[in-house]
Design a protein around this nucleic acid. Structure first.
Lengths: 232, 232
DNA sequence: GCAAATTAATGATTTATTCAAG
DNA sequence: CTTGAATAAATCATTAATTTGC
């Protein structure tokens, strides 16, 4: 209790302290009440801290609780590969990199959750890996590929000696344009994406057991598609 | 197969087509082979498409498969609320907004997966909501609060009439500083975060019903912590 | 009063930057 | 120096609020 180092300094700005309860429902006051059923409860909220005494208050707490996320708990007993990264970051194997690059070259840019999961499962056969690793890999690869290209083109632009050079630049720019157009595709919409998962605490250097372990024959003809779904 | 609308135009740049198989393992050639056991398989990869014939090939495919993510499958038999997620976006109720703002004011900035899950559960009592909604809300709220403040401070700086005004500005700036320092906290590190989840397909525009309904008493004294864990 | 058109908010994604492990 | 990980900034897209013409 007393241990709850409530460092309030972060919001010393105003002196909303109790005011918060007031500002709560009115802050931005939604233009017009969208729902009806909620109105009642809303009143409850407006009533300062009735909710906080009910649920909110329970929100306040330093940190603790279960380790793993309450989602997929299936722990595969494949001690074969593991450990390796008590709290370290993913260290891709060459097979994994190879596959990822292949997919990237195939056109995959931002796989959705489903695709990521499948990829993760596949890559899991070659080494420890999580979904986020796949996600980040694509993010980073894409970004760095782009900046490298940009850097190159700029560097070239800096010393345009021969006409062929200029042509090259033009080409690069053109490609960049194409790429961009292709990628954003007007309305990227419907990316069917998600965020959030794998929790992990900070302490506990102990296990950090991994998932996606072994080589169970779980290939139910899963498949992912690299290029954009359809030319919407 | 022929139906696979392979729109290659995205990568018309080079003309890597078969070259990909070659460039695969060498492209960026990792500094030094991290693993040993993998080396063997690596060779396999280098052998052009042995892997692709095994697993990779199965990756290529437009899109299909199961609807829901293959994770938490527990389907709650609460037909009362649901559906709706056909394709619309989360539309928070006032209670949800209120709680979120309360947490925000309490200092919560970037809740981790665990916290998000708990929040989601709580907010779920007031209306349909997903973890990503909570995540995004904090992201957006934080960002917009920041830009609004910046805009305000700049705007105010532009017409400093009274001394009290100046004082206000100073305060705002100071607060901004504090906040920033607080937030970035030197090394943000160890955010214990995650990404990826909820999939969702596109079709099925069926219901679009709303949620909110549930008032089941599922409060197992769960709690989240708003302020930063500890003054590291 | 109302519905179409316009504007303002804000939910959802993507991109750019930054930090730190190795 | 490379690159995995994480966050912040920029952007897109959709919904609600407001305005406008009837």
């Amino acid at each position: 209790m007393g241990s709850m180092n409530m460092k309030v300094h972060q919001f010393t700005r105003g002196l909303w302290d109790h005011e918060s309860s007031l500002t709560l429902g009115c802050k931005r006051l939604r233009p017009l009440a969208p729902k009806l059923t909620t109105t009642v409860i809303t009143t409850t909220i407006a009533a300062t801290d009735s909710i906080s005494s009910l649920d909110i208050k329970s929100f306040i707490k330093p940190e603790s609780g279960p380790r793993k996320c309450g989602s997929v708990d299936e722990k595969k007993e494949t001690p074969q590969v593991e450990a390796q990264s008590g709290g370290t970051r993913w260290n891709p194997t060459q097979e994994q990199i190879g596959i990822l690059e292949m997919l990237y070259k195939g056109g995959m840019r931002t796989p959705n959750a489903q695709q990521i999961e499948k990829i993760t499962v596949q890559l899991g056969k070659f080494g420890k890996i999580e979904g986020k690793n796949v996600f980040y890999w694509f993010q980073n690869h894409k970004a760095r590929e782009r900046q490298k290209q940009k850097r190159d083109s700029l560097g070239l632009t800096h010393s345009p000696r021969t006409p062929s050079m200029a042509a090259t630049i033009t080409l690069l720019d053109a490609n960049k344009e194409i790429e961009r157009e292709e990628e954003s595709q007007y309305k990227r919409k419907q990316r069917s994406w998600g965020v959030l998962e794998w929790c992990r605490e900070e302490d506990d250097e102990d296990s950090s057991r991994w998932s996606s372990g072994g080589e169970e024959g779980d290939d139910k003809t899963l498949e992912l598609f690299p290029l954009h779904p359809e030319g919407r």
